[in-house]
């Protein structure tokens, strides 16, 4: 790729913004440059071995308790009262962890939490929290230091808020995998495995069975379809006609892509850009031609160039994202005639 991304001084000091540069210069004397206070650190450090020792003693005690209680749990499963896992607290009454009614505890790897008529708060390791609604069933599939934490949401409602580097936390569902890129979102799944997602901050990746990966930023929502069929994120500002067209595409209507392209307006560019990502080769050009009428490709990139160079397509997708968040108008500057 030879073209550089969109200039944005506020983001990475590329390009120019005199107001931002002036404020930076004005405030820069306040920037922190004091060295580490070794004396204060020494006072804290002197208590360090004691704290570490106490923590190890507590961990050892919890391990003993977990081992002692393990044979007593129902269904022959692992205890939900101690050990490694996600801590949970029931709200409104006990919830069932591995079949045992508890006011709180630790959901172990492989363990299932069923809120029944109550609700629960689940700590996602030390990177976030999830609120589980009534009649929600989740299973902890994986948690390990330095690796991905993964829950399986079988059914119900989960509101998750995560502060962690991208792709540390994922939620699998019967219809799609939701990979956290650092954000807050609400997921709902019904008994048939159908559901929805609403992204409130940040962004998530949605991965369906056919390998399609959609990027859903804040201010979008989408259906999750049984059978892990592909679905597309739609802007919260989309009009009903566009939403209906997307529903027809997802339902497999004849020329569903044509219906969506015809109904799209500028606020729907984020859906069209995701459609371009997932469209088969023959359809991709048609989708990009429509996208170009909604959000111009940056730096005079042509459709042929975007089709041939993934980096150029990604740069265009980035421009669509900027338009979605209101940081760009997506209008083309004058380009030389080919």
């Amino acid at each position: 790729m030879t073209k550089r991304p969109v200039d944005d001084y506020l983001w990475d000091r590329s390009g120019e913004d005199k107001d931002v540069a002036r404020l930076e210069a004005l405030l820069s004397p306040l920037q922190h440059d004091a060295p580490l206070d070794e004396l204060r650190l020494h006072r804290a450090k002197s208590r360090w071995p004691m704290v570490a020792g106490a923590a190890m003693a507590v961990a050892a005690m919890m391990a003993v308790i977990a081992w002692w209680q393990w044979p007593r749990t129902t269904h022959g499963s692992i205890s939900c009262t101690a050990g490694v896992g996600f801590a949970f607290t029931a709200k409104g009454g006990d919830v069932a962890c591995n079949g045992t009614a508890l006011p709180g505890g630790v959901l172990p790897t492989g363990g299932t939490l069923d809120t029944g008529a109550n609700q629960a708060e689940l700590a996602i390791a030390d990177i976030g929290h999830a609120q589980l609604g009534a009649h929600t069933i989740v299973r902890l599939d994986h948690t390990a230091i330095g690796k991905r934490h993964q829950l399986f949401l079988q059914e119900g409602r989960m509101h998750a808020r995560v502060t962690a580097p991208p792709k540390i936390f994922a939620v699998a569902t019967p219809s799609a995998d939701v990979i956290d890129l650092g954000c807050e979102y609400t997921l709902e799944i019904d008994r048939n495995g159908a559901g929805s997602i609403h992204v409130l901050t940040g962004q998530v990746e949605l991965e369906t069975g056919n390998g399609a990966v959609m990027l859903a930023p804040a201010g979008t929502h989408g259906r999750l379809l049984p059978g892990r069929r592909a679905s597309w994120p739609v802007s919260d500002r989309a009009n009903p006609a566009f939403s209906a067209a997307v529903a027809q595409l997802e339902a497999g209507a004849p020329d569903g892509i044509g219906l969506v392209l015809a109904a799209a307006t500028k606020v729907d560019a984020i859906t069209i850009a995701n459609l371009a990502r997932s469209a088969p080769g023959a359809e991709k050009r048609r989708v990009l031609e429509r996208l170009a009428t909604l959000v111009a490709a940056p730096q005079c990139t042509t459709i042929d160039e975007a089709l041939a160079d993934k980096d150029l397509f990604d740069m265009w997708f980035e421009e669509v994202y900027l338009v979605h968040i209101g940081a760009s108008d997506g209008v083309a500057k004058s380009c030389p005639t080919p």
Binding site: R40, L41, K45, V51, A125, I127, G146, I168
Partner: peptide
């Protein structure tokens, strides 16, 4: 800021996820 780092040093052994 110094106070925050002194607390962090004390609690660092309890941090389970280095990436966090």
């Amino acid at each position: 800021v110094q106070d925050v780092f002194a607390v962090a040093l004390e609690r660092l052994p309890q941090l389970g996820e280095a990436a966090a």
